[in-house]
Design a protein around this nucleic acid. Structure first.
Lengths: 221, 221
DNA sequence: GGAATACTAGACTGGCCGGCTAGAAAATCA
DNA sequence: TGATTTTCTAGCCGGCCAGTCTAGTATTCC
């Protein structure tokens, strides 16, 4: 890496950003690595060579791999929360259309990375047995936040008459993330979008949405 | 381990089973380890000490960790195929009742192991990025087999009038395993049955099943 | 009975990975 | 300007892990 070659020993020239750049680069590379390979399979050296930073620097910025991991979860959570707020909170769209758009966007995202990147939270959730126990609560909390956001969106759908009033939005929102994580996992395994599409269709059918684009779970017609 | 204490050096007395016992014990322990921790996090030594077998024996029976892993997948697949055949093929029950019973059984299974064991296929699927590429096709194949079995069951449900004729059983079967893997993952993460229940209810609601035990996704009443 | 076979015993190796520490240069201050 | 502090880096260390190797012993085959 070019950056590594130019890097000199000793304190580097002061940067305008106050040296946050290196740290941020590590976090960014770490998040990518975790979405691809999970925590255990991601070596610190992987991240380091990716960014072009030597090991000593890493332990200047982070106390341990565990602390690093915790920060990666937070960073990903913040990123994803923002993403959800943008999609699901877009008042210019009807509520169910927002959900549909979010799924389509996520689909594009996975496709763009050749289905190599999944969901950081899903990956770490599966790994929990071999992970610092402190991660568990945080991961659950993050998922709950997403669930909450979707619940609000579904309630707005009810208010707009897009969703039958009888439905339990909390349950439906919970159901979505359970299944969506499964769909992302499967899409990564199969390296194709079909699982995402299958789950999207099925979920909208469960909501009883009138299929705008051939959605719905009945044979054509 | 007692077995280890009794184990003597040298060629052991011929066993009726032709020496399959040690090998089987390794496979059994391996499968358990993979359902709990996945492939990467499972050390060969873990399995070895668990069973009380020295390393030399392991490499007598298996060419490599990869070969061992491949066999674990097959073993788990065979076990699970059998399980599905028993539940979903039980002609004494109505088709949708069988599916319900299968889910209830799986739920009991997870509970029995304190939600520490998940699905071997799901675990390895998530890990694929760091796994021998040869595993991928096999994992997909296994899931397809499960899907096939459920599809047949759903078609029988249609024939029995339990399921609306318009539903696409192949799609619905695919949807189930996508979401079910997600539910198992989430149950393992949260160490409780709620995600399994949530998905079960939702899926049966999607089928349009008349809720026999309070299932369905609408607020009570 | 001697040779081949089947399996076990467990030390050893080489590589990788998380973590650590001495040290070097910029920044700050007297 | 020179001492001191702060900030960051180079590269080593110890532990773990897959896989190897040699030795050893009971059984079977010839």
């Amino acid at each position: 890496m070019d950056i590594a070659a130019q890097r000199k020993r000793g304190r580097p020239p002061k940067r305008i950003d106050g040296g946050l750049e290196t740290r941020q680069a590590l976090v960014r590379a770490g998040v990518i690595a975790l979405t691809e390979k999970g925590f255990a399979a991601t070596g610190i050296d992987d991240v380091l060579t990716q960014v072009g930073v030597p090991k000593g620097s890493f332990y200047h910025y982070f106390a341990s791999k565990e602390a690093f991991g915790a920060e990666l979860i937070d960073s990903y959570a913040a990123y994803f929360d923002h993403k959800l707020d943008r999609w699901l909170g877009d008042r210019r769209q009807p509520p169910l259309g927002r959900l549909h758009d979010f799924m389509a966007d996520a689909r594009r995202g996975m496709q763009r990375h050749d289905y190599r990147r999944g969901c950081l939270v899903g990956n770490l959730g599966q790994e929990m047995a071999a992970l610092p126990e402190s991660f568990r609560a945080r991961l659950i909390e993050v998922l709950l936040g997403w669930q909450q956001r979707l619940q609000v969106c579904l309630e707005e759908a009810q208010a707009a008459g897009e969703l039958a009033a009888g439905h339990d939005c909390a349950q439906l929102a919970g159901f979505f993330w359970i299944g969506w994580e499964g769909a992302v996992l499967r899409a990564k395994l199969e390296r194709r979008a079909a699982p995402l599409d299958c789950f999207s269709r099925g979920y909208l059918a469960l909501l009883g949405a009138t299929a705008p684009e051939g959605f719905g779970f009945t044979k054509e017609g």
